[in-house]
Amino acid sequence: MSDQKLPKRERLKFNKDFKRAFEKGKRIIDTYFVIIYFENNLRYSRIATVVRKDFGKAFQRNKIKRYIREIYRTNKTFFPKGYDFVFIPRKFLSDNFCKVSYSELREMILSMVKRMTKNEEVCS
């Protein structure tokens, strides 16, 4: 049960870490999300969500951030350890946010993570 917590150390918060992820990280692009991931040489993964100001109203921006944190928190076993993840919701999701359920977002993110792990196994 303790693995379902989201401690502060698992949050990406420093500008240098964001800069490194954006410059050197790999990307997985889908209809609703872009996930940037970068190996961080730690024994745990860290996450962040970047939501543009043109993504709906403030409550929608906050809601998508809560959804992403919750998806990560409850499904940590699917995410590889030792990576920084930056989730960026795309404009198409902003336009259709009220029509998309939490479970659909969860399945989409988990399928993207599975694609990422397959890509990393092939490259290694």
Rank of each mutant, 00 (worst) to 15 (best):
M1N: 08
D3Q: 09
D3N: 13
D3R: 10
K5A: 14
K5P: 01
L6S: 10
P7D: 07
K8F: 11
K8I: 05
K8S: 14
R9S: 15
R9A: 11
K13W: 00
K13F: 06
K13Q: 13
K13T: 15
F14W: 01
N15C: 06
K16F: 13
K16M: 01
K16I: 08
F18S: 12
A21Y: 01
A21I: 04
A21N: 06
F22T: 06
F22L: 08
F22R: 11
F22D: 03
E23P: 01
E23V: 14
K24D: 04
G25H: 06
K26M: 08
R27E: 07
I28L: 13
I29F: 04
I29H: 05
I29M: 04
T31K: 15
Y32Q: 10
Y32C: 13
F33L: 11
I35M: 11
I36H: 06
Y37A: 10
E39R: 15
E39N: 15
E39K: 15
E39T: 13
E39V: 14
E39G: 11
N41P: 03
N41L: 11
N41I: 00
L42W: 04
R43F: 10
R43W: 00
Y44Q: 09
Y44H: 15
R46P: 11
I47Q: 07
T49E: 00
T49Y: 03
T49V: 15
V51Y: 00
V51P: 00
V51L: 00
V51T: 15
K53L: 07
D54Q: 09
D54R: 13
F55S: 06
F55G: 09
F55I: 04
G56V: 08
K57T: 04
A58W: 00
A58D: 08
F59W: 13
Q60P: 01
Q60V: 05
Q60G: 02
R61F: 09
N62Y: 05
N62K: 09
N62R: 08
K63T: 12
I64M: 00
I64Q: 07
K65D: 07
I68G: 09
R69W: 08
E70M: 05
I71E: 02
Y72F: 15
Y72A: 09
R73Y: 11
T74N: 06
T74D: 01
T77L: 08
T77R: 08
F78L: 02
F79D: 08
P80G: 09
P80N: 12
K81H: 07
F87Q: 04
I88N: 03
P89H: 02
P89I: 11
R90M: 05
R90P: 13
F92W: 02
F92A: 06
N96W: 02
C98R: 02
K99I: 02
S101C: 01
S101Y: 02
Y102D: 00
S103Y: 00
E104A: 13
E104M: 04
L105Q: 01
L105F: 02
R106C: 06
E107T: 10
E107V: 01
M108N: 12
I109C: 00
L110E: 02
S111N: 14
M112V: 03
M112F: 05
M112S: 12
M112Q: 13
M112E: 04
K114M: 03
K114L: 12
K114G: 06
R115W: 03
R115A: 11
R115M: 12
M116Y: 12
T117I: 12
K118G: 03
N119R: 14
E120T: 09
V122T: 14
V122D: 07
S124G: 13
